[in-house]
Design a binder for these strands. Sequence first.
DNA 1: ACAAAGTCTTGACAGTCGTCAAGGGATCGG
DNA 2: CCGATCCCTTGACGACTGTCAAGACTTTGT
Lengths: 208, 208
Amino acid sequence: MAGTKEARRAPADKYDERRNQLAESALQTLGELGYARTSLREIANNSEFSHGVVHYYFADKFELIIYCVRYYKARCVTRYDAVVEDSTTAEGLLDAFAAKLVETLLDEAPMHRLWYDLRTQSMFEDKLREAVLMIDATLEDMIWRVVSKYAELSGRPTVMTPHAAYGVLDGLFQQALLGHLTGTADAAEAMAAQVHELMPLMLTPAPA
Amino acid sequence: MAGTKEARRAPADKYDERRNQLAESALQTLGELGYARTSLREIANNSEFSHGVVHYYFADKFELIIYCVRYYKARCVTRYDAVVEDSTTAEGLLDAFAAKLVETLLDEAPMHRLWYDLRTQSMFEDKLREAVLMIDATLEDMIWRVVSKYAELSGRPTVMTPHAAYGVLDGLFQQALLGHLTGTADAAEAMAAQVHELMPLMLTPAPA
DNA sequence: ACAAAGTCTTGACAGTCGTCAAGGGATCGG
DNA sequence: CCGATCCCTTGACGACTGTCAAGACTTTGT
């Protein structure tokens, strides 16, 4: 039992490569159909392999999906780091942050709805919980890097905890995503305006 | 089984009554298993009928689920109205509102996670969109009645649109629900504290 | 009381699902 | 060059799904 994975031959690289390849096909399928309607056969159809190969690289469906969640996290968790590092003024940071929010909402809408789908599934399915809570915490850190930098550039301390700041911003983003996917044309821009108004409220009031 | 009074019922009433009865069984099942794992047979199992009866009262699965969404809405949309009407001070309103939020999060967690599940499904499934957007708008109105009354009692105008106010509060609630369902003991109380800090920020700054 | 209409159960259908076993090629060490 | 190992395909299994038809039971109208 123990050590079956270590016993694997030299091409551990190729093994991981295939797993990532399948993860990408899975993410694409999940982003399109959602968790409820995604089958392993459909995932394999969106790859260059047949449906049986999934069980060669993953023990079961959950292992694949959880692997996908972590694989996805690795790509998006640094999304706003450049914004944080490059900004020199509070207003510039806020503009760049809001613009990046709009950009990712428009460009990667399927991935975002998948994330919300999986996070909600974790409320029902124990097996998804650990992975989901881990990435959620990482996203909270990501947002907090933005907010605390914004506070620093403004020269005013924050009045919100990282948890609360993530909660309210995530609420606005999710709302905008729903609007965007259901036909509200200016959902993303409306969110940008809301973020512009909300962020200053996260700091102690500016001196009059 | 002793149907003493149904004998004289008008058929239309009984028909709607059965539909509501099935809707309640469906809501219970959906709240327990989530959308992805709920089958019509499981719904019928949680009722006193057999699985075939569903297609006697509903054309298909979607009609049942959409009926459930509307049925659910009718019950919860007035949840905070008593809070709004009975409060005479801004602080009293805020306390009562936060307490009600905590109460419903703890007592009706399965229903809330079902709502978030269905709302997310509407990002993938066209057929759910209309019903979900309708109830979402109604919830936004419900929240706005609280916020605007809070502003009125405070004697200070709001600085947020109804849409934004609902977005941020819903974000905090959803975050707390996830925390509560995944084992964070004080998730609900933490949310109450966050709401206490957030609500004043929705109004123009108080005079120093 | 009899017939019609309404209500519900049963059983089956055509699919789809996750999973796994058997086996065929491909690749590589010897 | 051969045999072992890895990679992948194929096909099948039992279970489950939404749906519907046939019929039994109940209630209603006359």
